[in-house]
Design a protein around this nucleic acid. Structure first.
Lengths: 371, 371
DNA sequence: GCATCCTCGGGAACCGCTTCCAGCCCAAGC
DNA sequence: GCTTGGGCTGGAAGCGGTTCCCGAGGATGC
């Protein structure tokens, strides 16, 4: 009954929305604002010219201590706040950084975002978020319209591999870009070396005697973040180094916990199930652990699972994984970008951040007697 | 060994960062941009005046079909993109919406954010994110400096309860605000009725015969999102309606999955453990389920658990919960706000969105024989 | 055929701030 | 005592658009 009520409420709400009805605004916010004071008002009150006021407030140029104090006081009394738009228009700098990511509800991306945000906030920069999945129409719009508006001083792209056309567009806006996730032989790439991390994780399994190792995750073409592809490469490299090129198996899965669960249920119900799984990330790994538990497959006795990330749930699920710290990556990317804005030259490669293997209780030797 | 390498790499990197070394910039982005063409260039090329070009491009005012076509063609050939700053300065509208939330890595908030983003993107609006925990110094800065810069046309506050001082600041910027999460007797509040949802969830447990019901979650003063408080209220209301005022127990817990796990381990190891738990949200509920499993407590036979959210993991864990759709809430909030910008009057209350009880397999009658 | 209306396009002011340039004044140098 | 130089300051020109206002025609009404 409640359900029914709710449903009809919802429908009614939708109707209201669709019919374009006007909505609530706290009336307190509705009164005509008392015309915010501009720099001219400050100048007037301080008894100086606009230019002097500007100098005093921004700290650029010469101003006597006395005048500056007067201007500052006036600004304070008037509650003066400079209009960002006017400042940007005049100076060409926006004090705003754009961030492009394919989604925001995967742990990795959310953490990166928080790291970026915190760093920018501390430096007085705003963050404009563009969240667009590769291949989506929204994505096309982001590049065609939004990024071209050059509303930001620099851009951080997270797990986004711009296609050629998009790169061209980005170039034409002439703003520095830092990538999180990518090939570290390219300049402006921050993060761990995902290929190496996946390789390391695979080698851990190989070292435990496993040969039948599946790479679980990603594969749906239009949602490939480039992280996923790099990790698959690392897995394949390790397998082929071990002479197991043909044994390498990549099983696709949505890159989410429930997605990993579902894919793992399929994979593990199968007769030819592997002895070990490298998941593209911890969410998928944890989904796999849950699936194994549900199917009564003992981990790590009968199945080893390793992830990459050290997700906040990893410890709770005793997951062996390669630890990375996305929040730090975001913070570093922001620092690098801000730095670049100040010294816009001398290109340098940024060293990959470390990824450390954390062995917990989801991996074990294939044959305990051989340990 | 790898670990060791990694650590030293990391330290070195930190050193580089701290010493202020200049970083990589893709040199391709470094060349002086070929001076992007402005509307004057377009006008020149089309053989018209700036004002005509502006009219033709914006569609406002009269323009002959012929001239408009010429202007459009010229703009196209030049790859003209208007400068947002100039437009904003001249018109006073920024086509940008600010979003304030206490964090971005909780499922609820990430979903809301994606909903907002998608809607704004479709309407050609940018989204500037302010992510600041209540009580943090960052939070203070957000309100004092960033919001005051009036860089946006409107604001969406998610799970944020501005303190009085902050409200004053928000008022003074004179921009409409929509809140997600809050009391629905206030204008401009979008979302489910959290009090009612928690009450409903509690009633479900009461209806199953449970009397010893614990509310698990939140309680750490400075990280209280107001959702959490509203839900606690709903729980208390249901308990007191059932004449169990004094039986009501609130056990604090971090509002995360591992946090819920840890808190539940404590709670359930205790002798006086409850027969049922209402978790403040699904993350905590799932943490609780995991804890119960680890402790060998059968769910739902010996313990009922209900959550609120219908988190993406809920189905996988067979969790009974009150379903809400944060993505829809974000989308609605954005629509409401955009609507308000167009018709800045006629305040109206927005109806709460529905929250439907979804019964899965984590709740059962206290005594099966009484069912 | 002439006055009138309307459409279209151009000129210029303006949004709010920065910054170049020139002028002023005062201290130091000869 | 008169330049010279430098620290401060004010005036004014932008930054890149929008928009008000007005004049020029062309179409229409009488």
């Amino acid at each position: 009954m409640h359900t029914c009520d709710a449903r009809s409420e919802w429908n009614r709400l939708l109707t209201i929305v669709r019919s374009g009805t006007v909505y609530a605004i706290p009336s307190t916010f509705n009164d005509e604002s008392p015309r915010m004071s501009g720099i001219a008002d400050v100048a007037l009150r301080a008894g100086v010219s606009k230019s002097t006021a500007s100098r005093a407030l921004s700290g650029a140029g010469h101003t006597s201590e006395r005048t500056r104090a007067r201007v500052l006081a006036a600004a304070n009394e008037l509650g003066y706040v400079p209009s960002t738009n006017a400042v940007s228009l005049a100076t060409g700098r926006t004090r705003n950084i754009g961030v492009v990511m394919p989604c925001v509800n995967r742990w990795f991306f959310a953490e990166v975002l928080e790291g970026i945000q915190a760093t920018l906030l501390a430096s007085g920069y705003d963050l404009t978020l563009y969240d667009a999945k590769p291949g989506s129409p929204a994505r096309a719009r982001v590049f065609a319209e939004f990024l071209a508006r050059k509303r930001f001083d620099g851009l951080i792209a997270v797990g986004v591999e711009p296609i050629d056309d998009e790169i061209g567009q980005l170039k034409s806006i002439g703003r520095p870009i830092v990538n999180i996730v990518g090939a570290h032989d390219q300049p402006g790439v921050v993060g761990i070396d995902d290929v190496r991390a996946a390789k390391r994780a695979t080698e851990h399994l190989l070292g435990l005697g496993h040969r039948d190792i599946v790479f679980l995750g990603a594969g749906d073409a239009d949602v490939w973040a480039n992280v996923d592809r790099l990790r698959l490469e690392g897995y394949q490299a390790a397998m082929s180094d071990a002479g197991l090129t043909s044994a390498a198996r990549h099983v696709p899965s949505p890159v989410t916990l429930p997605g990993g669960y579902a894919a793992a249920v399929d994979l593990l119900s199968d007769d030819g199930r592997p002895t070990a799984i490298l998941a593209v990330c911890d969410e998928v790994a944890i989904g796999t652990l849950t699936a194994a538990r549900r199917l009564g497959i003992a981990v790590p006795a009968s199945l080893s699972v390793v992830g990459i990330d050290d997700h906040e749930f990893a410890e709770m699920f005793a997951l062996t994984t390669l630890k990375q710290e996305p929040r730090e990556q975001g913070a570093l990317a922001a620092r690098v970008l801000l730095d670049t804005l100040q010294h816009p030259d001398s290109p340098t490669l940024i060293e990959p951040m470390p990824a450390r293997l954390i062995v917990r209780n989801s991996t074990a030797s294939l044959d305990p007697s051989q340990n």
